[in-house]
């Protein structure tokens, strides 16, 4: 009995010493396995889809609304309707001037703040059944067509990484931030 008590005490002391040595109060305090593997610029280029409202992240390429209309009728009209209205899914044109009225009608043209969003979203997610199949030129052309339907640009205006961020959306002044940093 007595020896077993002594053994217990010794074991407890050893556990305390051992644990204290290996683990700090906060077991991970400042300790990280540092297993991140550096990735190359080429690889980043492949996985980075982020487009900023300034145009940063937009790829090379160009397209206008005339080309875009042909592409739209093939890839988009089934869901979004002719001239981007009245389809089974969201209208991309129209609704202008309704946003501050009694029944706001949000479309790309009446509501979206930046033209860059159109390019970004088409490139990421459209056409719905086969995203990633359009070339950058085709995405620029479709973006131009939607902008043209909403009266933002002319039908032969070329959209590129330089011109697209400058296309001024009708509701571009219609947004504020609810979030503010705590500093």
């Amino acid at each position: 009995m007595f020896t077993s008590k002594i053994t217990k005490i010794v074991v407890n002391i050893l556990i305390i010493l051992f644990v204290e040595n290996i683990f700090a109060d906060d077991v991970f305090d400042g300790v990280s396995p540092q297993l991140g593997v550096i990735i190359s610029d080429d690889y980043i280029e492949q996985v980075d889809f982020v487009v900023m409202p300034s145009g940063e992240g937009l790829p090379k390429g160009s397209g206008n609304a005339l080309t875009g209309k042909v592409l739209y009728n093939i890839h988009c009209m089934a869901c979004h309707g002719p001239d981007a209205k009245g389809g089974i899914n969201g209208d991309l044109a129209g609704g202008h001037g309704t946003i501050s009225g009694p029944i706001p009608k949000k479309t790309v043209g009446s509501y979206w703040p930046y033209a860059t969003i159109i390019f970004d979203y088409i490139r990421r997610a459209m056409p719905y059944q086969s995203p990633g199949t359009l070339s950058n030129n085709e995405v620029y052309a479709l973006t131009a067509y939607i902008l043209n339907l909403n009266g933002v640009i002319g039908e032969d205006e070329l959209m590129t990484a330089q011109t697209l961020p400058k296309a001024k959306m009708t509701n571009s002044e219609g947004f504020i931030w609810a979030y503010s940093p705590s500093e």
Binding site: M52, P113, Y114, I117, D120, Y121, A125
Partner: peptide, 12 residues
């Protein structure tokens, strides 16, 4: 990034 990207799902 330096600011928000203003994606479709945080604007429209």
């Amino acid at each position: 990034t330096s600011g928000p990207s203003m994606t479709k799902d945080e604007t429209s």
